[in-house]
Nucleic acid binder design. Structure first.
Length: 428
RNA sequence: GGAGAGGUGGCCGAGCGGUCGAAGGCAGCCGCCUGCUAAGCGGUUGUGGGGGUAAUACUCCACCCAGGGUUCGAAUCCCUGCCUCUCCGCCA
């Protein structure tokens, strides 16, 4: 959420930013609504002041001079007077409430303003490659897709998963399941070693949490919802973990806060029919280890770089070639001001695929979730900046390991760093 | 699931219809005092929004879990929801 005062004072900048993000919300209209709201608020404050004063007088009279007929008469007059004030207050308050709701319905679906360093562009073709690590391996045979290899090794079963759940689900079996678990542990250990505190959060969250991080109200069709009682399945650990500090005023010296969390993630994938229908790339349920930071505003862009580097290091440890893309204005997520996608090389598809997304949300989520901090002796509070990055998406990592480390005989070499977790060096 | 109790400031804890943003204590901060420390004395300390100012000062509104209601007036009364605790039942 953007600050309505910021929108008012920088409306041409905001307008331009929204245009670059392909968002067609009318800012001037919103500002007018806000002016109207403010007028109502001021009128209400005045009436309340009047009411408070008179009510206080009534209280005085009652208490001090109950016996005098004169003061009883006066109190009656006052009561009649203040009743009128109260009545007009009531109707104004109703107007204010609907004005506030109308404003919220707009501000809640306005995306974040992209950072100045974000390239302007319509879609993903304008994303910019920042760096590349590792050389895609040269095969002396035709590399296969991970689902074909997994099937012949009997470590992933998509057909039976479809039977028990439906499309876009997978059963991990034997060393496939073991690889999934090994990656979870490896990633959590890796991140823990880099200063991130391990969190295991709830996976069902309430509407407020989903609103705090920006999934609601705009992206309800992407979420799995439980109707009664109302809960949402998290699409990413970012939601419960960022909301850990919702509504809090942190002490300056508590910052920065680094968390890492494993959760399963649930996504409807509405509108992606026909995309990645085979394999582990796009599932309704997948595992992910997430990185979350709460930082002071002046550090958030440095923190984005180190966050991205932390996620990259996992791929380096695993020996998986990747590249880092800076997303353009048209491709960046709703809540983000700047995002780097890390894409891993998949020999079966002969292309790079997203395996991590690292974003600085600045104060966008903090304002929604009311995550603030108090700076030393300064009065007042400021919103923290929040960042998250995948470190990493586990299903896609499994796919990358299978495809990158496949052997001609159909076996898979386990990366060094995972061997202690796996207990073997080769899946065959 | 059944029966009770409760949610007040950084913390503990009073208040149960009017002068309560809220006693008292603790903690914190600023003075004073004091060989040092401890104790003592005085003052001070929440959040958001509006007006005002060069900035302060000053001032108004709101906030005692959340949302409604009663009332001239609600932390206090009523309703709903959420959460916590105790007992019984059930259960991984």
């Amino acid at each position: 959420m953007l600050d309505i005062r910021f929108i008012r004072e920088n409306h041409s900048l905001v307008k331009e930013a929204l245009r670059s993000r392909n968002c067609a919300i009318d800012i001037l209209d919103l500002i007018q609504m806000e002016d109207n709201r403010k007028e109502l608020q001021q009128a209400i404050d005045e009436l309340r002041n009047k009411r408070n004063i008179i009510s206080e007088e009534i209280g005085m009279m009652r208490k001090l001079q109950l016996k005098s007929d004169h003061s009883i008469e006066m109190a009656k007059d006052k009561t009649a007077e203040v009743k009128e004030v109260s009545d007009s207050l009531k109707s104004l308050e109703e107007k204010l409430k609907s004005a506030e709701e109308a404003i919220a319905s707009v501000t809640m679906i306005i995306p974040n303003i992209p950072h100045a360093t974000v390239p302007v562009g319509k879609d993903e073709t304008s994303n910019v490659e920042i760096r590349k690590w590792g050389e895609p391996r040269q095969f002396d045979f035709q590399p296969l897709n991970h689902w074909d290899i997994a099937k012949s090794l009997d470590i992933i079963d998509f057909d039976r998963a479809a039977k028990i759940s439906g499309a876009r689900f997978a059963i991990m079996k034997g060393y496939g399941a073991r690889l999934e678990r090994a990656l979870m542990n490896f990633m959590l250990d890796h991140n823990g070693g880099r200063g991130y505190k391990e969190i295991f959060p709830p996976i069902l969250v309430n509407r407020q949490s989903m609103t705090g991080t920006g999934q609601l109200p705009k992206f309800a069709e992407e979420l799995f919802r439980i109707a009664d009682p109302e809960f949402y399945l998290v699409p990413t650990a970012e939601v419960p973990v960022t909301n850990i500090h919702a509504g809090e005023i942190l002490k300056e010296e508590e910052l920065p806060i680094y968390y890492t969390a494993y959760t399963p993630c649930f996504r409807r994938e509405a509108g992606s029919y026909g995309k990645d229908t085979r394999g582990l790339i796009r599932q309704h349920q997948f595992n992910k280890v997430e990185l979350v930071k709460f930082v002071k505003p002046e550090h958030s862009y440095d923190e984005l770089e180190t966050l991205t580097a932390d996620a990259e290091d996992i791929l380096r440890q695993l020996g998986l070639p990747y590249r880092v893309m800076l997303l353009c204005t048209g491709d960046i997520g709703f809540s983000a001001a700047k995002t780097y996608d890390i894409e891993v090389w998949l020999p079966g598809q002969t292309r790079y695929r997203e395996i991590s997304s690292c974003s600085n949300f600045e104060d966008f989520q903090a304002r929604r979730a009311k995550i603030r901090f108090k700076r030393g002796d300064k009065k007042g509070t400021e919103f923290v900046h929040t960042l998250t990055g995948s470190g990493l998406a586990i299903g896609r990592t499994v796919a990358a390991i299978i495809e990158n480390f496949q052997q001609k005989d159909g076996s898979i070499v386990i990366p060094e760093v995972l061997r202690a977790y796996m207990g073997i060096e080769l899946i065959k």
